[in-house]
């Protein structure tokens, strides 16, 4: 895994000399609060929207929004606050690009199994555990994927996740359990020889 590069960013604020002191102080405060969570923001966006380029756009948009709404932030959990905005921007992006999948799936179909040998992308994944695991996570519906990413990669508490995703702690708990169970089953299974049924065939 690449080392995480947390910490202050070079450059800091770029306000012009014409801006008044308050504005500059506010911007500095924003940088102090939000910028330490840039990696967390990018990681979540990347897992939700799927590509580096799109994740960068989403994060940039999210930070602009965060800055614009910064006076509504009263010193709570900064990471959850930043991530809640990143998350909303990611879903907006997904909806705009026709990729949103907002409904949780039925119990037996939390995720689609990896496809069959006709899928050249997946065929190339055999033996590549890291890539395979990433692919399996990407196949989780976003509502489950985000909880898994925030807990197991971002190492947030259930409460912080509940705040970031605007769901009750109990929902965090059950989504996480279902996401891990689905992942575990898919992980233990060798890549399917038969093409797995598509989601729409399962009536979900």
């Amino acid at each position: 895994m690449e080392p995480r590069q947390k910490g202050a960013l070079p450059g800091g604020s770029a306000v012009t000399d014409d801006d008044d002191r308050d504005r500059r102080a506010e911007r500095r405060r924003f940088d102090d609060v939000a910028l330490p969570h840039l990696d967390a923001a990018f990681n979540l966006a990347r897992w939700l929207v799927g590509t580096h380029a799109d994740a960068q756009d989403v994060v940039q948009d999210a930070f602009l929004r965060a800055l614009r709404h910064f006076d509504g932030y009263r010193g709570g959990d900064a990471r959850s606050w930043v991530l809640s905005i990143v998350r909303r921007c990611s879903y907006t992006w997904l909806a705009r690009n026709g990729a949103a999948e907002t409904l949780p799936l039925a119990d037996d179909a939390v995720m689609a199994e990896p496809g069959g040998p006709e899928d050249p992308e997946l065929a190339a994944l055999r033996g590549a555990d890291r890539r395979r695991l990433a692919t399996l996570i990407e196949r989780l519906p976003p509502a489950f994927r985000e909880v898994l990413v925030l807990r197991d990669l971002e190492e947030m508490s259930y409460r912080e996740i509940a705040l970031a995703c605007d769901i009750p702690v109990g929902t965090v708990m059950s989504r996480l359990a279902r996401a891990r169970t689905a992942l575990r089953r898919a992980w233990e299974k060798p890549i399917a020889k038969e093409p797995a049924p598509r989601e729409k065939d399962r009536g979900v």
């Binding site: 895994m1 690449e2 080392p3 995480r4 590069q5 840039l38 990696d39 923001a41 990018f42 990681n43 990347r46 897992w47 580096h52 994740a55 994060v59 555990d129 890291r130 695991l133 990433a134 996570i137 898994l148 197991d152 990669l153 992942l183």
Partner: peptide
């Protein structure tokens, strides 16, 4: 997941 799934740094 912790060891093998990628963490995408900015």
């Amino acid at each position: 997941i912790r060891d093998q799934a990628p963490y995408y740094t900015a």
